[in-house]
Design a protein around this nucleic acid. Sequence first.
DNA 1: CAATACTTTCAGAATATATTGAATATAACG
DNA 2: CGTTATATTCAATATATTCTGAAAGTATTG
Lengths: 172, 172
Amino acid sequence: MAMNEKVKQKFIETWGAMGSLWGINTSVARVHALLMVSEKPLGLDDISEELKISRGNASMCLKELRNWGVIKKARETGDRRDFYLSEDDVWTMFIRIVRERKRRELDPAVDSVRKVLAESKDDGSDPKVKARFSQMNEMLETMNSLAEAFLKSDEDAKAALSLLSNMVKMRD
Amino acid sequence: MAMNEKVKQKFIETWGAMGSLWGINTSVARVHALLMVSEKPLGLDDISEELKISRGNASMCLKELRNWGVIKKARETGDRRDFYLSEDDVWTMFIRIVRERKRRELDPAVDSVRKVLAESKDDGSDPKVKARFSQMNEMLETMNSLAEAFLKSDEDAKAALSLLSNMVKMRD
DNA sequence: CAATACTTTCAGAATATATTGAATATAACG
DNA sequence: CGTTATATTCAATATATTCTGAAAGTATTG
């Protein structure tokens, strides 16, 4: 019991710290971790109590996790409360997180550089600056195509990852 | 002239915003952008003036960029000041940024999960929690191997990226 | 459709991160 | 080796992010 709690706690804090390194709010990551190791679906109060965060904060974290697509709502008959479950497959989870990060981090950058490049096309501005923009654009477009191909579906992504992983293992 | 300045400014602010999305300090990214489009090496004062940031801050930003390995120091004879130049190849730059992010974001996570997993090996704690830890560990180790294989050298990484990129282009 | 049981929102407070600039360190020069 | 020119550090301050909790919103029940 005590041991269970200790390792569970460690899992939650480890995942929280990882989230923080990855630009994900620590509370969001802790809520996610709690749901990942929970035997049964948890409600807002369970989460708020267990992690010692306000109900308001817990609600925001759940909203965020729903946006990431890594948790599921599960209502029980005769109960008005919402309960939440974590997506079960770690790889699916990983891919969804990468997909959401692409949407937040790469897409706006691609858009922004595309736009400035188009605007400055024939305006006689410094060739070095234009060349830089053009290189940036090419790089971002390449990364974008790669990411889109890889992330097309959860299944494709899992297959690609497994293939790459085996290629790497093989070489050793 | 005015046009040059405008597009240059836009490049700097675009790169700054991208950096911010990617968890890189905005000032660091702006200094990097300025060096990328500069015709000649720039000193601390040039940077501080042009970007309207303090000399102290500029110094910290340059230190950070040196850590990322994306700028070079270039001293001129008869001048005590340090001047800086940006790495010229966008792909090399990209790969170095990814390498540094791996070091900061993935490596500590891998370490941390490895450690807790080893500690809880035979302690009779909740199997579901242990299973989660084990899955996390497997995923992180896989990503780590992939990243290490990919990032081994700038050249290998560029080759792999080019290969992948062509594979994706081919399919369309 | 009013009462109830919950969830969400959001202004203000708490916390964390980034920036400044004066003090300190370092290195080149004569 | 002292002087000078420059770079770096870091305590104080400014800014941005996260969290709280009470108020507003939404669904379900009888």
